[in-house]
Design a protein around this nucleic acid. Structure first.
Length: 153
DNA sequence: GCCAACGTTGGC
DNA sequence: GCCAACGTTGGC
């Protein structure tokens, strides 16, 4: 069992949007970073637990919990010239980008703001709180996962 | 809106 | 393979 954080800008796709999808499930498309791709492609397994993080918004922070329900497969938005995620270098015969399917579990009882995560000593080694971090997918340790759940209150 | 931190691109 | 230029991310 692995633990993850996945970021999304709520203007583009929020925890509320995920909750309203059919089966409360959606494919996590549009990831165009090799490190993040490698984690999705090689390490994310069915049943892994994921925090949903809202970035680039008024109160950035953790807003919900999700679960991996389908392991990696090609991100078809890379093949679609109409998509803003189109990448001509990704060939259906040799896909460059991958995604997983994610299912809504619940909202956290409150937004756990980034400022609070930064103040927590037990989370000081977490990638998310490091300056300049821009990765949209990060792995957590089990201890970090539990620590954040306790912060939820 | 600003800007620091990164990642990618492409000329050489 | 170096590195300057450029584009993007995302907190503030």
């Amino acid at each position: 069992m692995n633990y993850w954080i996945m970021k999304s800008e709520p203007n583009a796709f929020s925890i509320d949007d995920l909750e309203q999808m059919p089966n409360q499930t959606e494919h996590w498309d549009g990831v165009r970073n090799y490190q993040a791709r490698n984690m999705m492609r090689d390490q994310m397994k069915i049943g892994d637990q994921v925090f949903f993080y809202h970035s680039n918004c008024k109160v950035p922070g953790i807003v919900g919990i999700m679960e991996v329900v389908r392991e990696s497969y090609p991100d078809h938005t890379a093949f679609d010239p109409q998509s803003k995620y189109f990448d001509p270098k990704s060939d259906p015969q040799n896909p460059r980008w991958f995604m997983v399917d994610i299912k809504y579990i619940r909202h956290t009882r409150r937004v756990i703001p980034l400022t609070e995560l930064k103040e927590c000593d037990a989370l000081e080694n977490m990638q998310l709180v490091r300056k300049g971090n821009r990765l949209s997918i990060m792995q957590l340790t089990a201890v970090e996962w539990e620590t954040i759940l306790k912060l939820e209150g």
